[in-house]
């Protein structure tokens, strides 16, 4: 497989930044995985290794004022929406300098001021919230769009149906972006959904549905860009289904008994989103292998720095326990 052709509107600089960002996402989650395995951080986490193209590609087309809602598997969305990896890592380390001052952890990182309305620990919980944020945009004529991430599992929640119906009757500026990574925890999408494509559900809401190769950065950018444009033009929501794959287990305690090693190897070897991008960049002679390696190392170093920042940060004081329950 090779990725789609690079859109003419993209500069080489932008492409290389995206390549770097995808490595940043991958190293962030691999580092988190390593720390959880060692028991160095507690709680649980859900990693998006292997899904970097959906986060990077979809968020790339957003303007600064556009908003996102994210999921329990949300570190990539967060980074792609411009979050500071130091503060993200500090949150996972339960430190005061974290995005949530150590009170949220992996599943609740948010940066409301910069348009990240938050990850969500409830499957499908963020979908109606995205609709509400889009309603604000419409009622106050603010012009922003909302990009709503959710997974194949969430597409079977009632909130999915209610939210898509609401957004479609009100023609709200929201893009429903389904990252179909093939499994809702252990449940294979083929056993949990009776149709081939979740994207086909769009027709029951009278909105466009797109089914795309989620590991192809440019396919993601193209479909999301079009949907965002449509949303901002007042034409209403779009449902995008991006086929992808999570390399790791559902959460930290997952023996992955529900799938085969062969399947995992296929996605890793044939459809690694970062490798696909690298091949395209080299083919198009936009950078050398050495230059790409330098970007990769830069990302790795940033994550190591983030760990250092997190480790050195203070824990929240016990005096903060009862703060911020109410505004």
């Amino acid at each position: 497989m090779i990725s789609k052709e690079i859109p003419a509107s993209l500069t080489t600089k932008q492409i290389l930044e995206l390549y770097h960002q995808m490595w940043l996402i991958r190293y962030f989650d691999e580092k988190v995985d390593e720390f959880f395995a060692r028991g160095a951080i507690h709680g649980t986490t859900h990693l998006c290794v292997g899904q970097e193209a959906t986060a990077a590609g979809a968020c790339f087309v957003l303007a600064e004022e556009d908003k996102i809602t994210s999921t329990h598997r949300g570190h990539g969305h967060c980074i792609a929406k411009g979050a500071d990896v130091n503060r993200m890592m500090a949150e996972l380390f339960a430190k005061e300098t974290g995005y949530c001052k150590g009170k949220g952890g992996s599943m609740h990182i948010a940066d409301v001021d910069r348009g990240n309305l938050g990850a969500n620990g409830i499957v499908g919980g963020g979908i109606p919230i995205a609709v509400g944020a889009a309603l604000t945009s419409k009622m106050k004529d603010l012009g922003y769009a909302v990009l709503c991430f959710f997974g194949d599992g969430a597409a079977n929640e009632g909130s999915f149906h209610e939210a898509l119906n609401l957004a479609s009757i009100w023609k709200l500026p929201v893009v429903f972006f389904c990252e179909n990574n093939q499994y809702g925890m252990s449940g294979p999408v083929k056993e949990m959904v009776n149709i081939e494509n979740i994207g086909d559900r769009a027709s029951s809401y009278g909105i466009p549905g797109r089914i795309i190769e989620g590991n192809d950065l440019f396919a993601v950018m193209e479909a999301t860009g079009e949907a965002v444009e449509r949303a901002k033009a007042g034409e209403g929501p779009t449902l995008i289904e991006a086929k992808t794959y999570r390399w790791k287990g559902h959460s930290k305690s997952d023996a992955k008994k529900y799938r085969t090693k062969e399947e995992e190897q296929y996605w890793r070897k044939e459809k690694d989103p970062i490798a696909l991008l690298a091949v395209r960049i080299i083919n198009d002679e936009l950078a050398t292998n050495d230059e790409l390696e330098a970007l990769q190392l830069q990302a790795k170093k940033q994550i190591e720095d983030a760990v250092e920042f997190a480790e050195k940060s203070p824990a929240p004081s016990l005096a903060t326990l009862e703060l911020d329950v109410y505004a």
Binding site: K67, T69, V112, L117, G125, I127, P128, I129, A130, V131, G132, A133, A134, L135, T136, S137, M139, K140, G158, S159, H161, E162, A163, N165, L166, I169
Partner: peptide, 19 residues
């Protein structure tokens, strides 16, 4: 529409963004 979960969530999202 008759969508208590959806409209409650829409209220949350609208409130979170300034309404």
């Amino acid at each position: 529409p008759i969508s208590e979960s959806g409209i409650a969530g829409a209220a949350v999202g609208a409130a979170l963004t300034g309404m």
